[in-house]
Nucleic acid binder design. Sequence first.
DNA 1: GGAAATTCATTCGTATGCAAATGATATCAA
DNA 2: TTGATATCATTTGCATACGAATGAATTTCC
Lengths: 153, 153
Amino acid sequence: MSGEDNLLKLVEVEAPDDQDYLLQDQVGFILRKAHQRHVSIFASHIGDLTPPQFAALAKLRDVGETSQNQLGTLIAMDAATVKGVIDRLKARGLVELSKHEVDKRRLLVDLTTEGRDAIDRLIPLAREITRETLAPLSAKEIATFTRLLAKLA
Amino acid sequence: MSGEDNLLKLVEVEAPDDQDYLLQDQVGFILRKAHQRHVSIFASHIGDLTPPQFAALAKLRDVGETSQNQLGTLIAMDAATVKGVIDRLKARGLVELSKHEVDKRRLLVDLTTEGRDAIDRLIPLAREITRETLAPLSAKEIATFTRLLAKLA
DNA sequence: GGAAATTCATTCGTATGCAAATGATATCAA
DNA sequence: TTGATATCATTTGCATACGAATGAATTTCC
């Protein structure tokens, strides 16, 4: 290798390196991984319901009968997604559907007795899921993290 | 309303209320929403590539040719998911596949020239996506949040 | 050397997640 | 009142995401 070649190589190696984009440091990538980890913890405690299905039941428990669309808004799901979730909960007898008497566009959703029993039973497990998800953090860190995460969401 | 009724109502209102499970305060629910917001910001800047597709290209840029499975490990995707992502990138001519000469099980993936050009062009947009995702936080909050999020992921 | 265990990749089935198009109904406004 | 607009729900198409099953190739270990 000639002297000129060595010089050239040094220049290349020390170039500003626009490559300093590290995927593993980007917030979007880490958010995706943190979300994956949570879903995995969820599944290990509640195997027969997905987080979106649980969210639908938990929110219905809070607000009672609502329209499908309104429920979607409350649990951050678009109309197409919430339909699938509700369809599967209905197929399992956990929610029931009825038509709105006045506004014929609306499809009302409510918990069945089985649905209410199920969500009441699952709430303690859900608390444990939250606890385990946050286990890597101290109490003070949990407070900080939750506050900042909420600002992003 | 009788005095007994008032008494009864007070008792109910002050009951321990195991209902104090608020979906919107649970870390899993907020994580899901924060992730949704990020994906939406991503799509507004990079419309013709999804975050997983971008992740695959960005990681290939870092590490060069690897096996499909190894790439999946690096970007936190299981084998079934990474296959679909790579298939779509291949169909668009951004990556190319070849068989490993020695280990016949392995399918090697690498960027094409077009793929390298594309990812080099997109990196600046990705920086902006990260910036916009974190925009609700101050510089100090960003440092704290990123550190804690990484502990969870 | 050869059986057992492991790894790599593929396929199938199910469940989000969202954009876009469609149809039915309701509301608003000229 | 009626025509434009908005809302509610559904459907289709595409893209993750992952468990489970399968088959091929490799590695381990006796």
